[in-house]
């Protein structure tokens, strides 16, 4: 069942992104879409509404970039819980550190290894 919900919820979140692109007649570039989804993920998660979605859909909610925002928001909030105000500075990025480092390292290596095809 979790596979079903991962597919459906993940698909629906992407459809929202597609609507943003189509309804703004392509003024929304990939960068706009990604920025919007990260920020939206943070806001929804801070309001406590994203965790239920993760419980239901698993990767369907964590793989889209809203999930990245969820990770950042929960990291910052848990940071505050543990370390007070300083946690707002350290919590977000530490929670998302694996994803960010993976993207930087693999991105760097790919850039050195491959030549764009054109």
């Amino acid at each position: 069942m979790q596979f079903f919900w991962a597919f459906v919820i993940g698909g629906v979140i992407c459809v929202i992104g597609q609507l943003l692109i189509d309804l703004t007649s392509y003024k929304f570039t990939p960068a706009h879409v990604l920025v919007t989804f990260v920020s939206a993920g943070v806001v929804i998660s801070a309001l406590g509404l994203y965790q239920p979605l993760v419980n239901l859909a698993g990767a369907g909610a964590t793989v889209p970039l809203t999930g990245f925002g969820h990770l950042l928001a929960q990291g910052a909030i848990n940071g505050v819980k543990q370390h007070g105000l300083l946690g707002a500075f350290s919590g977000g990025i530490s929670a998302a550190a694996a994803g960010i480092t993976a993207a930087v390292v693999f991105g760097y290596l790919a850039a050195l290894t491959f030549r764009p095809r054109g």
Partner: peptide
């Protein structure tokens, strides 16, 4: 490579970091 790696990812990290920080501060 160094600078362009963040051409699109930079804005994403900036927005994500700032909003998450704001969420943490508001929670505090």
């Amino acid at each position: 490579v160094g600078a362009r790696l963040f051409a699109v990812a930079g804005p994403v990290l900036v927005w994500g970091t700032v909003t998450a920080w704001a969420a943490g501060v508001l929670y505090f």
